[in-house]
C-alpha cells in the first residue's frame, strides 16, 4: 500500500525537513534507530566523527537517487531497489575511507559495511525520499545525518573524556587523571546511551508538565 504523505507538501517549508532531524526527530535519541553503530564506534570522538560522516554521505546520496527514481519504481520491488542503491553507496564510502586513511578504516572495521543495515537509512528512504522531490529529500538526508553525527558526538565525547581523559586525542586533565576505562569498554557504551535517553525522558516529561 503506497501511503501518501499525510501533510500537504506546501505546508512544510524546506527548513523543517532539515531541522527536524537535528533535534525534534533526532534519529538516535528520539526515534532510537541505528543503535548498533551508535554504541560500537563511539569509544573515541574521532571514530564517532568518521562514522557519522560516512553515514551522512550514504544518507544524502541514497535519498537523492531514490527520490529521482521514485516515480519509475513499482511498489512491489521498491524495497529491493532501495537496498541495492544503499548497498552501492555504502561500497563507495567503504573504498573512500580506505583511500583516505587506513587507520580510520581499521578502527571502524566491518561497521562501515554495516551501514547498509542501519535502519535510519532505509527508514528515510521509505518514509521520506520515496514521496518527496529531490531537493527536499537531500535536505532531509542532511538533517538526519547531522542529527546522527550530533548523537554520535554526544556519546563519543562522554566516553572519551571519562574513559581516556582526552578529547580528540588531546589530554584534558593533566597526567594525574586516572581514566575511567570502563567507559571505553562495551558496558560503558550501554551506560552512556542509557544515561542520555534518561536525560531526554526527563526533559520531555518536564516539558509536558509545564505545557
Amino acid at each position: 500500500m503506497h501511503v501518501h504523505a499525510t501533510i500537504d507538501p506546501q505546508d512544510t517549508v524546506n527548513q523543517d525537513a532539515f531541522l527536524d532531524g537535528l533535534w525534534k526527530q533526532n534519529p538516535v535519541f528520539v526515534q532510537v534507530l541505528g543503535t548498533c553503530p551508535t554504541l560500537a564506534v563511539t569509544n573515541s570522538v574521532s571514530n564517532a566523527l568518521a562514522m557519522g560522516a560516512a553515514t551522512l554521505f550514504v544518507l544524502v546520496c541514497s535519498n537523492v537517487l531514490i527520490s529521482l527514481v521514485r516515480k519509475l519504481v513499482p511498489k512491489q520491488v521498491r524495497i529491493a531497489t532501495y537496498i541495492l542503491i544503499i548497498a552501492t553507496f555504502v561500497t563507495v564510502v567503504d573504498y573512500v575511507i580506505k583511500a583516505a586513511s587506513i587507520t580510520v578504516y581499521k578502527a571502524l572495521g566491518p561497521f562501515i559495511a554495516l551501514i547498509v543495515v542501519n535502519c535510519i537509512i532505509l527508514g528515510r528512504a521509505e518514509a521520506y525520499a520515496s514521496r518527496n522531490p529531490v531537493g527536499r529529500s537531500a535536505l532531509d538526508g542532511l538533517g538526519m545525518g547531522i542529527g546522527f553525527i550530533i548523537a554520535l558526538l554526544c556519546l563519543g565525547g562522554v566516553r572519551e573524556i571519562l574513559g581516556a581523559g582526552t578529547f580528540l586525542g588531546y589530554p584534558l586533565f593533566g597526567p594525574g587523571y586516572q581514566p575511567w576505562v570502563l567507559f571505553l569498554l562495551p558496558p560503558g557504551g550501554f551506560f552512556t546511551l542509557g544515561a542520555w535517553l534518561l536525560a531526554f525522558n526527563a526533559w520531555k516529561r518536564r516539558k509536558e508538565k509545564t505545557a
Partner: peptide, 20 residues
Amino acid sequence: LMAVVSLLCGVIIVAAHKTT
C-alpha cells in the same frame, strides 16, 4: 527495471573501486 538499477549500481561501484 531491476536490470537497469543493478547496472547503474554496478557502474557506480566499479568507478569508485577503480578510482580508489
